[in-house]
């Protein structure tokens, strides 16, 4: 049956598909956080991130035509993948010890505030790609938009240490 559009609905509802998906994710994260706690929620979202990270890793290996990306290629890949989803990360510094990335807006936009578990997406995608190619990574997030900072600061450590979440290659 053909349905006429609801008059005036556009004035009230503005979300498009993209916004809808972000909202959906945010709500999922919300439900997870409130049901299983932040730590477990991060675990599950981290799991999803790891899978996406693995797939992307294969793609970047194909693009760079290599079996393992080097530090610079890893940094390039991380910036590139974020750019594609309007994450706009910039590399602040690269060294054999660590890659430091910063941004001032989040791909989840304003949906991310108070949803720290969503950051685990970035952590695990970054960590997975870095560890798969460089053998080990430890992702630390000293600043995040989700926690109320103006921007995110993500440090992908390539050496062992205390802070952050470890990834193994």
């Amino acid at each position: 049956m053909e349905m006429a559009p609801i008059a005036g609905a556009d004035k009230v509802i503005s979300r498009n598909r993209d916004e809808f998906l972000r909202e959906l994710l945010s709500e999922l994260a919300n439900v997870l956080e409130s049901r299983v706690g932040l730590e477990a929620a991060e675990g599950f979202i981290g799991r999803v991130g790891s899978r996406i990270g693995e797939t992307m890793n294969e793609e970047y290996r194909a693009i760079f035509e290599t079996d393992a990306l080097d530090v610079t290629q890893v940094a390039q890949a991380l910036v590139d993948l974020k750019e594609r989803i309007e994450g706009a990360f910039k590399v602040e510094s690269i060294s054999p010890e660590k890659i430091v990335l910063v941004n001032s807006s989040c791909p989840f936009a304003d949906q991310v505030e108070g949803r720290e578990s969503l950051c685990m997406m970035t952590t695990s995608v970054f960590g997975r790609i870095a560890a798969s190619n460089l053998g080990y990574a430890r992702v630390e997030k000293p600043q995040t938009i989700a926690r109320g900072d103006l921007g995110c600061r993500v440090i992908v450590h390539l050496t062992e240490g205390e802070a952050g979440r470890e990834f193994f290659g």
């Binding site: 675990g43 981290g46 799991r47 790891s50 695990s124 960590g127 997975r128 560890a131 979440r165 470890e166 990834f167 193994f168 290659g169």
Partner: peptide, 9 residues
């Protein structure tokens, strides 16, 4: 195992 070693199960 590699993935879960990050702190998952």
């Amino acid at each position: 195992m590699l993935i879960a070693a990050s702190g998952d199960a």
